[in-house]
Design a protein around this nucleic acid. Structure first.
Length: 400
RNA sequence: GGUGAGAUACUCAAGUGGCCAACGAGGGCAGACUGUAAAUCUGCUGGCUUUUGCCUUCGGAGGUUCGAAUCCUCCUCUCACCA
């Protein structure tokens, strides 16, 4: 394969590349001499669910694997532990380690939906950071200074706006950079928000005379379903790659038209030309934006499940919302006869509290068997009902 | 170590003795309209089966008062300046 073509594939969708020449050299060495190289990706083991935001980077790693890379998935188990301010007792630490291992396993399973397992190594940074010791840590801190540390965007903002910064937070980038020293990686991938940390790896590899300086490749941050903030689990605006096909499909369709193009660019395997053409057709009124969104939703759903599941998800979705039918696989609950409606909704997991349930009834958001409920004192008679709150929350209740 | 400023609900942010479950904005939820899009309009946004009621909440613990987010004391945390 010509080097230029490989490089183009690698570059697609990247936000920024530092030391492109290095990447080109690595590709050349692979194609001309068969030399493999290492590409690092650091993962935070606290939240084990991968979402679409992660896949932007994982897909790039998969591309690297096709061009001679061995992927190093780094589980930041050590850095996760020092980040926990309450992690002071020994027992807790042991427990954390178990959780971390479990999370790492989950991560791996999910990541292998995209990555080639034969070309992937799994590493834990505790294996060298534990051994670093206090002396090693102090040695590490001499490699950088506070003024430069404060250049990091979020530190600077917090410092200027008078918010606190813990010393341990300064250690984070240093330790992450030291990982690159220990791993002797050639390239590190990350989101654009990781730029500072990624460059730290380069800086420290030089300081520790590793004999090479990692190239850095940054991918754009994928916005979450709200279209504003980055996709993250804690914000609840994500699509998890292990979610059921119907969920993925439905969530994809709920994004705004504007966001759809962003997702096309970052997630779709369609060529950029193809996407531009679709965009033109939509603007010209030749293609309904809803259609374009459906195509994207099908593609993404099929990626994590398969074609059949994606088509089924679409059919279920269409019958539910176009014909206003009730979905088939909704949670079932058993409720005692005579239960107050509000309590039943809470028990069914449709509402967080009786008060909220009462408020929703007042607003006409609650339905039983598609009939709007107007009496907030209603007691359930024995029988089978479909409970509904808003447009999306359903439960089948067996009252006995 | 010293001096000063500050801590209010998911976030920002008013309130400085009763009219406070606490202005406003953002976010979120719901309703109308739609393509479960956007925009717009409307309502809600601590809990409690008796909802013009009751209980809990304004960093924490005490105190003053008929009554405290608001005043006093101590504590914790944050920031700024000085050392």
């Amino acid at each position: 394969m010509p080097i230029a073509k490989a490089l183009r594939e690698i570059e697609r969708g990247c936000a920024e590349i530092i030391d492109r020449e290095r990447i080109e050299t690595l590709l050349r060495n692979y194609y001309e001499k068969g030399e493999r190289y290492k590409v690092k990706l650091g993962l935070d083991p606290t939240a084990p669910d991968l979402h679409l935001g992660h896949t932007v980077i994982l897909q790039k790693l998969a591309a690297f694997q096709q061009h001679g890379a061995t992927v190093q998935l780094l589980i930041g188990d050590f850095t996760a532990m020092i980040g926990d301010p309450t992690g002071k007792s020994e027992t807790r630490k042991v427990l954390d380690r178990e959780t971390v291992l479990e999370n790492a396993k989950t991560y791996q399973e999910q990541a292998f939906k995209i990555l080639d397992p034969d070309k992937t190594e799994l590493l834990f940074n505790s294996s060298w950071l534990d051994a670093l010791g206090s002396a090693g840590l102090i040695q590490l801190t001499t490699q950088f200074n506070v003024a430069r540390m404060l250049e990091r965007d979020d530190f600077e903002k917090r410092y200027k706006s008078g918010q606190s910064i813990a010393i341990s937070e300064f250690l984070y980038p240093l330790l992450q950079g030291y990982d690159s020293v220990a791993m002797e990686c050639d390239i590190e991938l990350g989101g654009t928000d990781q730029k500072f940390n990624l460059l730290m790896g380069r800086h420290l590899q030089r300081a520790y005379n590793v004999g090479k300086e990692q190239a850095v490749l940054m991918m754009p941050i994928l916005e979450g379903l709200d279209g504003v903030q980055k996709m993250s689990k804690s914000l609840g605006n994500y699509i998890g790659i292990s979610e059921p096909a119907k969920e993925i499909y439905a969530k994809m369709l709920s994004i705004s038209d504007e966001l759809m193009w962003r997702y096309y660019e970052l997630l779709s395997s369609r060529s950029l030309d193809e996407i531009a053409e679709m965009k033109r057709q939509v603007a010209a009124g030749e293609l309904h934006p809803k259609k374009a969104k459906e195509m994207l939703a099908l593609e993404i759903t099929a990626r994590f499940h398969d074609e059949t599941a994606a088509r089924e998800a679409k059919e279920a979705f269409d019958s539910l919302f176009k014909q206003k039918e009730i979905p088939e696989d909704i949670p079932e609950v058993v409720i005692e006869a005579g239960t107050w409606i509000c309590k039943a909704l809470v028990d069914a997991g449709l509402e967080p509290s009786n008060s909220q349930a009462r408020r929703d009834i007042k607003q006409g958001a609650v339905r039983i068997d598609r009939e709007k409920v107007s009496d907030d004192q209603l007691k359930l008679e024995p029988g089978e009902y479909i409970l509904q709150v808003g447009k999306r929350k359903f439960a089948r209740a067996r009252v006995e």
